[in-house]
Design a protein around this nucleic acid. Sequence first.
DNA 1: ATAACAATTCGATAATTATAGAAATGTAAA
DNA 2: TTTACATTTCTATAATTATCGAATTGTTAT
Lengths: 96, 96
Amino acid sequence: MDTKKITKMMKALSNPNRFEIFMEIYKSNQQANFEDEECFVYDVMQRLNIGAPTISHHLKELSNADLIITERRGKHIVARVNEETVSHLRDALILD
Amino acid sequence: MDTKKITKMMKALSNPNRFEIFMEIYKSNQQANFEDEECFVYDVMQRLNIGAPTISHHLKELSNADLIITERRGKHIVARVNEETVSHLRDALILD
DNA sequence: ATAACAATTCGATAATTATAGAAATGTAAA
DNA sequence: TTTACATTTCTATAATTATCGAATTGTTAT
């Protein structure tokens, strides 16, 4: 994993709102059976009180950094954490 | 560990040059016995080809994020990685 | 004390970005 | 095929920041 990719992920998680969005996605993934319409933009928007265009922007950043995977399901967007990439990032912080 | 602290660390590591500096510090810590004058600004400056004021700025960011600990030793600055904080950051990425 | 070197602060600038409102696009139901 | 709702794109703006040159401060040796 090269510096560029790592720092891109770090940047994606460096904005508080974006980090919260990421965590919301993770939490929704945890609890929800996948048939439910969980963790789409509209939903997160309500919870975090951020405008839709901003959420959309943040989702794209997280997605570009490969930290989440998004998928359209009807009118909604469903997002899930890309566990593999996250674990790569974690590994990059193992210094010893 | 709250969002603010985590995202501050993420931001500190989100700039490629700063990330490299962090890694240089870590590597120097590894190899050098602590009597040597390793990992100070001047040294890193040479290796990464960045201006001294910029290095200084980056060191402060890393330091403010608690990722490194700096100490003046004579004319030089000695830096070392704060392993404890780094491991906290790593833990924040353990999602399961 | 002064010269030499290391690091920081100051001041300025260019680039990036978080955010929102307005407009556009996609999707499903009526 | 309208209507309604969800998401994205466009456009603009305010805020942040990476960077450097110049000036300053701190430290050591002469």
